[in-house]
């Protein structure tokens, strides 16, 4: 199912949170809403879910205007940042909640509910803890239970608010690969909110970068990284150096700088070298301002860099942004 957000505005007591956001998400896509905290991305997600109402503009699901539909009628599942599991209900009952809540005429039988919940427990690989309570689960398990609970009502669209935000680093990476796999199997249109660019790059088909209530740029992760439309996007998606070169102001990523011992390019002084990692990070001072270059270990050995050494830096790309 596709989602279309059309010119949505939202204001909270005089503060503009969303300034005319338009966005189309095609059936089966996995889209990340990426932006710094307070940029309006969660508000946008809540408007799509029907938990907030836009001041103007609307949301369509498969071309159907959702304005008059309550959250439970939209066939949209929402997973909250802190999962919002029902503490007094077991894992099984948490997942069964949406099915049991249905009016009698469309409520599945006890047997159908058990079947559905058990199949979801298998999907999230937690069938062995169905009788436990949320307080007895780890963060990653809670997240998966929250996901199963929302999948139980067979939503056409899945919305996830900072799905990995409350997890520790290792679990986070595992879970996002797991989510990516599940998305491949289920094919449910999914929109998730994150402030972590690595997460957005790693998981999504498409990234929408939001800042101060506007969409700065959207596109495929690789394309956004290589061709940012403006300084904000360039800066948000990774480290960027600002260089004065041949009278032009260039925006260059650390790996887009080559260092050489022979004069040419910009004269710089090495202030620090960090060799731990796939690239060697070299901190330089160039015309009084600090820049970072990332070079290969091979180059690092060839140049035999030392702190305080003078070196010549040349940008390999000519990226400029109109001011």
């Amino acid at each position: 199912m596709s989602i279309d957000v059309i010119d949505v505005h939202k204001e909270y007591s005089g503060t503009k949170v969303l300034n005319g956001i338009s966005l189309s998400v095609k059936t089966g896509q996995l889209v990340a809403l990426l932006g710094p905290s307070g940029c309006g991305k969660t508000t946008l997600l809540r408007i799509i879910a029907g938990l907030e109402h836009p001041d103007s503009g609307t949301v369509l699901r498969d071309g159907i205007d959702l304005r008059t539909q309550r959250p439970g009628e939209r066939k949209i599942g929402f997973v909250f940042q802190h999962y919002a599991l029902f503490r007094h209900l077991s894992v099984f009952e948490n997942i069964a909640f949406g099915l049991r809540a249905r009016p009698k005429s469309i409520r599945p039988t006890e047997e159908q509910i058990r079947e559905k919940v058990n199949s979801l427990l298998e999907l999230i690989q937690l069938d062995w803890i169905s009788k436990r309570y949320p307080d007895q689960l780890s963060g990653g398990q809670r997240q998966r239970v929250a996901l199963a609970r929302v999948l139980a009502v067979s939503p056409q669209v899945l919305l996830l608010d900072e799905p990995f935000g409350a997890l520790d680093a290792k679990v986070r990476v595992e879970l996002r690969h797991w989510l990516r796999e599940r998305h491949k199997d289920l094919g449910v249109t999914t929109i998730f909110v994150t402030h972590d660019q690595d997460e957005a790059m790693d998981v999504s088909d498409r990234i929408v970068i939001i800042n101060k209530g506007y969409i700065e740029q959207e596109g495929e992760p690789d394309n956004l990284y290589a061709n940012p439309a403006n300084f904000f996007v360039c800066d948000f998606l990774g480290t960027v150096n600002t260089l004065e070169f041949n009278g032009k102001k260039l925006y260059v990523r650390p790996h887009e700088i080559t260092l050489s011992a022979t004069p040419g390019g910009l004269e710089a002084t090495v202030t620090a070298i960090r060799t731990a990692g796939q690239m060697v990070q070299v901190a330089l001072v160039c015309n009084g301002s600090p820049i970072t270059a990332a070079i290969s270990h091979a180059d690092h050995e060839r140049l035999a860099l030392k702190n305080g050494q003078t070196i010549y830096a040349t940008p390999t790309v000519q990226r400029e942004f109109p001011l």
Partner: peptide
């Protein structure tokens, strides 16, 4: 009380009364 509990109930299609009975009251 975490407001998102009620919102979760609403998103899962539960009526206000059902959410009150099965989520709010037990809390």
């Amino acid at each position: 009380m975490d407001f998102s509990l009620e919102e979760t109930g609403a998103c899962l299609g539960a009526s206000r009364w059902y959410v009150f009975r099965r989520v709010i009251l037990p809390t």
